[in-house]
Amino acid sequence: MLKHRLIPCVLLKDWQLVKSIQFDSFRTIGHPTATVRVYNARNVDELIVLDIDASLKHEEINTEIISDMADECFMPLTIGGGIEDIDGIYKVLNAGADKISINSKAIENPEFIRQSSRIFGSQCIVCSIDAKKVNGQYRVFNKKKGLMDIDPLMLAKEYEAMGAGEILLTSVDNEGTQKGYDLELLGLFKDKLKIPVIINGGMGKPAHGFDAIKNGADALAAAYIFHFSQYTPAQIKEELHQSNIPVRIDFLQMG
């Protein structure tokens, strides 16, 4: 049986790992390579690393740091932030990433998803959508353009049609709050897509993961809970397992 994945999502800013709250107030939480080494030792299912400044600053992606992280990583590694063209994807993949996450570029030019998924395969292309609730309606939020008059589900369907392999759906309102995933947002996506949805933003305890999966999430991304709580990925999965959610726990028995 396919397992629900628990994916630490870490943010890179000025080559440091940081954590944000509602996309603001960044705190430095450590060195990227050391952090990846810890996650690898903890046998997490996957890792997402987003360079949050790259697309704002039009900076080249730091492939050296990606390569250092990939050397420590024997699980799938998704890298996002600042990918502007096909050549950028080549660089990130050659540095050792398995998938790339695209946000701003996809909003600007959805055709880019079609091009990149044709070249690299859908499995490689994760489309990231940030959503915010305004006046009772969910709208796409973009760091460059701010709030946009785009429905997140419509955008996700467009990405899917263009060949995206997965959707990383982040709730701007819940991000960093530990109050739980945005279940209302998730509810809008339930059974609407043929590709997996990774929900992100708000996990504060294992029960939040249970709620999200029951509301249609295929995978759980989280950050805050790993940095500022006592929970380890293994403990969260153990609790999900106790609640009959299929998760990968065989590594717990391997000693």
């Binding site: 396919l2 629900h4 499995q123 590709i195 295929d218």
Partner: peptide, 10 residues
């Protein structure tokens, strides 16, 4: 089914 089949499976 969601396709691709992506993730951990036994």
């Amino acid at each position: 089914l969601k396709v691709p089949h992506v993730g951990w499976n036994n």
